[in-house]
Nucleic acid binder design. Structure first.
Length: 562
RNA sequence: GCGCCCGUAGCUCAGUGGAUAGAGCGCUGGCCUCCGGAGCCAGGUGCGCAGGUUCGACUCCUGCCGGGCGCACCA
């Protein structure tokens, strides 16, 4: 998949490498000295041309010559690449700047038009199988802001990886086993008896959210007081089963409203049921990485980069969450994923080293696991921090967020910051339908373009135009700047995917929208005159393609009207 | 105390070791008899501190200061 811009860059790289090889004798480089890894990048400063390389600067040490002299020597050996270079100059401390024939931009729009919805797609992934696991919230409550950020981030990462050619699966790990679930059962039991009119307090460290009151009420509606007199274990099991079904269904619905769909919902309990946890423990034991102490079974995590050793089986015989998680990650690789990505809250960072350590201990490659740690979300309303606590049941849920600010603004806000930056989410800003809100700025550009084409369609009914737009007519500063930026999209996509950083796409889309608005404001499209109008329509059309493709990656809609 | 993340403009944040560090919001002043004014144009202040590596550091290393989060037989 060779895009225009990438081709130009590659051509310059090849020509430079060849020049460096040819200049070896003059530069005093023997055959063993490698040519350093130079960059061919787009200079920030326009006067510095279309591309610049630092090759001469990097050669100063091996060649032991001043950089500008090296640059001179390189230039004398530089065969003009297959592209049209108008001017090459040595500048600054020793950069070599390439000024291209500005006509190269003429190829960009036809390229975008031809690719359409696939413009920006790459083949970097080689169809390798990648799994992205995200949210994986405890089914003990509703989804909160941290889960929402994880959902937006994980889904966009998955979309990006798919766009660059990976075979991607989205997965939700359901923590339906362990202490917290037992805790949930006890809280439910209390709400159940309360619903039946009895005085039965929710345990101190239980779940106090009002949602459990509703769950209990529905349980009573279905089963009445049948379980009041039943065996406690039976009662709790029934309540739990009922609640988990309900909670998971609700989570799935919330996430779908948020534009997130999973390929797999993976049950932790299923690992226990089919003996996968036991088998994993056995494998670790055979490999000599377990020992007993104080009646518990420990994993020698400290031998694999962990901060300390970890308990896998408690003295009471119950395996820990970590034991199940090891089995789970083993299972991921056994299912054939070559690359596994977890999106976790920063409060789990301590878990990363031991998780990777456990993979190493099992004989898997710990580098095949990447954990994207995402910092916490702080919610602001009316300039004040909204305090949240799951334990006390006081937190804003994903559903409430969607009701208040809408899906597009929410998705955009969550994904516009890098994962390792704390997120201050301003509810007032996110729900404002004004120019303060950056998400509408992008969508507005898209809607504007659609509006132009609606009018065009209206007019074309009288006098349809059929010809080929002449992109050479697009000579205005704002036009060229916009085209240039549209040409960047494939590289932006690749970078964002490799870095697992969808926020780059958010910023890029905003940038493109801004360039379009500037162009639009400075020049007429419809009625611009014979030929020019068609060229500008093509530019608008291609801008729409890029905006749409970018917004798609973020899970934000591209509306035709607003 | 130890570990991870963060510290860039008044606020919220971008910025693969490159040349003169950007955007949004807020503030001020302008802009179409015309394709959607949710738009455009103009105006300015900043890389927490101190060392080090490098031809070159916001970026890498060390120390310090400040903020967040971890350091359970919880998940």
């Amino acid at each position: 998949m060779a895009y225009l811009l990438a081709g130009l860059r590659a051509g310059i790289e090849r020509a430079l490498r060849a020049a460096a090889e040819a200049a070896r004798p003059e530069l005093g480089l023997d055959a063993d000295t490698p040519i350093p890894d130079f960059t061919v990048e787009v200079p920030r400063e326009k006067n510095h041309g279309d591309f610049a390389t630092n090759l001469a600067l990097l050669l100063t040490k091996p060649a032991r010559r001043p950089p500008r002299q090296i640059a001179d020597t390189l230039l004398s050996h530089l065969k003009p690449p297959e592209i049209q270079v108008r001017k090459i100059e040595i500048a600054g401390p020793g950069f070599i700047n390439f000024h291209l024939d500005p006509d190269w931009l003429h190829g960009v729009l036809p390229e975008i038009e031809a690719w359409g919805g696939n413009y920006g797609r790459r083949t970097l992934g080689g169809r390798r199988r990648v799994q992205v696991e995200f949210v994986s919230a405890n089914p003990t409550g509703l989804l909160h802001m941290g889960n929402a950020r994880g959902a937006a981030l994980g889904d966009s990462i998955a979309a990006l990886l798919a766009f660059v050619g990976f075979d991607v699966a989205r997965e939700f790990y359901v923590n339906d086993a362990g202490h917290q679930v037992e805790n949930l059962a006890l809280s439910l039991e209390a709400r159940y008896f309360q619903a039946l009119g009895q005085d039965w307090p929710v345990p101190e460290d239980g779940y106090h959210g009002a949602d459990l009151v509703d769950t209990a009420a529905r349980f009573v509606a279905r089963h009445g007081d049948r379980y009041a007199a039943a065996d406690a274990g039976e009662r709790r099991a029934a309540l739990l089963c009922f609640a988990l079904d309900e909670k998971l269904a609700a989570m799935r619905a919330s996430l779908e409203n948020f534009g997130v769909r999973y390929d797999v919902w993976f049950s932790e309990q299923s690992l226990h049921n089919r003996g996968a946890v036991r088998e994993t423990l056995e494998l670790l034991r055979r490999r000599g990485h377990l020992y007993e102490k104080d009646g518990a079974l420990w994993f020698r995590a400290s031998a694999f980069g962990g901060e300390k050793d970890e308990v896998l089986v408690r003295a009471n015989g119950v395996p820990t969450y970590f034991a199940a998680d090891i089995a789970y990650h083993k299972d991921k690789f056994d299912r054939g994923f070559e690359w596994v990505i977890n999106v976790w809250g920063a409060d789990h960072h301590g878990h990363v080293a031991r998780m990777k350590g456990s993979l190493a201990a099992l004989g898997y490659d710990p580098d095949a696991l990447d954990v994207v740690l995402m910092q916490l979300v702080r919610l602001y309303r009316g300039g004040e921090i909204v305090r949240m606590s799951k334990r006390t049941g006081q937190y804003v849920t994903l559903d409430e967020l969607l009701a208040e600010v809408g899906r597009d603004a929410a998705r955009y806000f969550f994904v516009t910051r890098s994962a390792d930056s704390h997120l201050d989410f301003d509810l007032d800003l996110a729900k404002s339908r004004t120019n303060e809100n950056p998400v509408y700025y992008i969508q507005y550009a898209h809607a504007r373009i659609c509006s132009i084409f609606r009018q065009l369609a209206e007019r074309e009914r009288q006098a349809p135009w059929n010809g080929t737009p002449n992109v050479a007519l697009l000579k205005e500063e704002t036009e060229r700047a916009l085209i240039r930026r549209l040409a960047d999209f494939p590289e932006e996509v690749a970078r964002a995917a490799i870095d697992l950083a969808p926020h780059r796409i958010a910023h890029y889309a905003h940038d493109v929208a801004g360039l379009f608005h500037s162009f639009y404001n400075a020049h007429r499209i419809l009625g611009a005159g014979e030929g020019l109008e068609e060229a500008r329509l093509l530019l608008a059309k291609c801008t729409r393609v890029v905006l749409r493709n970018a917004l798609n990656l973020l899970g934000v809609s591209a509306p035709e009207r607003m």
